[in-house]
Amino acid sequence: MYRFAIILLSAILFAFVLARPADEISAPSAPSALTTTTTPATILKQIDVTNPDGSYNNSYETSNGIKVENAGYLKKIIVPKQESSDGQVIEEHEELVLVQTGLYSYSDPEGNIITLRYIADENGFQPQGDHLPVPPV
């Protein structure tokens, strides 16, 4: 019984510590700490289309220069015959996967426009952008 009470009180104390207002959290004291301003941005343009076949297209642009575009559709793939870890054989079959393509862009603190294009499909998330590191060849 006492263990339960101690665990419960510890959890409540932990929740209070995490829930304290942000202005009570100590800010970095270093003068070189990056400071940002939080100017509210407004949505200048927004498109949101969802089709009966499950495909969609959405995008938005904000007053602070952020642009986001995203499109998705369902694609049939053939999953080859395979064996599970417990020795069960899974026969070749078709599956539907969601393919998403898109991009987003924003300005970094130095004013450079950062753009990331991506595709996410049965091969995973595949980002492309000039700001991303290039693996050695």
Rank of each mutant, 00 (worst) to 15 (best):
M1D: 07
F4P: 04
I6P: 01
I6Q: 14
I6E: 09
I7L: 15
I7T: 10
S10P: 00
A11V: 12
I12W: 13
I12K: 10
F14W: 06
F14N: 03
V17A: 15
L18D: 03
A22G: 05
D23Q: 12
D23M: 11
D23S: 14
I25N: 06
I25T: 07
A27K: 15
P31K: 15
P31C: 14
L34Y: 03
T38S: 12
P40F: 05
A41C: 11
T42H: 05
I43T: 14
K45V: 02
Q46P: 00
Q46R: 12
I47C: 08
I47T: 12
V49M: 10
T50W: 00
T50S: 12
N51S: 07
N51D: 07
D53E: 05
S55W: 10
S55D: 03
Y56K: 04
Y56A: 08
S59W: 10
T62Q: 10
T62M: 12
S63W: 10
N64Y: 02
N64E: 06
I66S: 01
E69Q: 11
E69P: 02
N70H: 14
N70R: 14
A71I: 07
G72C: 04
Y73W: 15
K75I: 01
K75M: 08
K75N: 00
K76F: 04
I77S: 05
V79M: 10
D86I: 04
D86L: 05
G87E: 03
V89E: 10
I90H: 04
E92F: 04
L96R: 07
L96D: 14
V99Q: 02
V99Y: 01
Q100G: 04
T101H: 01
T101V: 09
G102A: 00
G102L: 00
G102S: 05
L103I: 01
L103E: 06
S105G: 14
S107M: 07
S107G: 00
P109Y: 02
P109H: 03
E110L: 13
I114W: 03
I114D: 04
I114K: 06
L116V: 14
Y118L: 06
A120L: 03
D121L: 11
E122H: 14
G124I: 11
Q126A: 08
P127V: 03
Q128W: 08
G129I: 01
D130R: 11
H131Q: 10
L132T: 00
V137R: 12
